[in-house]
Design a binder for these strands. Structure first.
Lengths: 120, 120
DNA sequence: TTGACGCATTCCGATATAGGCATATGATGG
DNA sequence: CCATCATATGCCTATATCGGAATGCGTCAA
């Protein structure tokens, strides 16, 4: 098997830096493809492809306006992501304490038995 | 080119469902590899590989304990992700309203003249 | 020392990108 | 109907997975 499809969910879709840029840009309002491509320093096909992915996971929507296609943000799909990550909030707050805790455990372990240490 | 490396940052690392499961499981405290593999229904090599990725992006740390290697959560790396996604919070709240808003803007724009857009 | 156990790594195959480039498709204005 | 602008797609290459199976390696107990 290979990696999960970029269109499998919001997590995978926003993993790409370029797509993150697009989403941030769209917070400023709807915009046509070529404009975005220019502002973000990418080619038009590149922008179109990334927008396609974002569209497939529902993070952006399109609206036809004459020759142009205005892409707009539909951030609802980011909410689940925010909540999932938020489920770890208390852990990154405690991180420092926990590190100290581990250091402590480490010393104790050393005196008791053989040795150990942080690997990595 | 190919997709960004899974170890390039937390965004890419947590895009994998299996790794999400691991992180969730680790909220319960440190655990040895085989235990996790069993509980999550994956092979030991699979668990080891995913843990390696998580280790490389700093989302977990290891501690040697005799034959075992205890993996523990280090959620600090998730904070930036949470904040980035949080930057869209007001948008998923307004989503519905904005859709209506856009429809409105659309009509107005049509009567005025050409078009433009918010240029960030 | 030997064997069992816990974990990491390596090799393999199938797959899905991301980017570059060329081109097809659509709508618009003469 | 034609030329043009705005987008979407198709094709191609290099690359990095993910899973599976086999194996290497360090630790522990008898």
């Amino acid at each position: 098997m290979a990696r999960a499809t970029t269109t499998s969910d919001a997590f995978n879709a926003i993993a790409e830096p370029r797509r993150q840029e697009i989403l941030m840009l769209l917070r400023g309002g709807e915009r046509p493809v070529t404009d975005m491509a220019r502002d973000l320093g990418m080619t038009q096909p590149q922008a179109s492809k990334h927008l396609r992915v974002l569209r497939e996971v529902g993070l952006v929507r399109v609206r036809e306006a004459g020759k142009q296609r205005l892409y707009g943000l539909d951030a609802r799909g980011l909410r689940p992501v925010h909540e999932w990550v938020g489920g770890f909030e208390r852990f990154w707050s405690e991180s420092f304490d926990r590190l100290a805790e581990y250091a402590q455990e480490l010393k104790e372990a050393r005196q008791e038995g053989p040795q150990d240490g942080d690997v990595q």
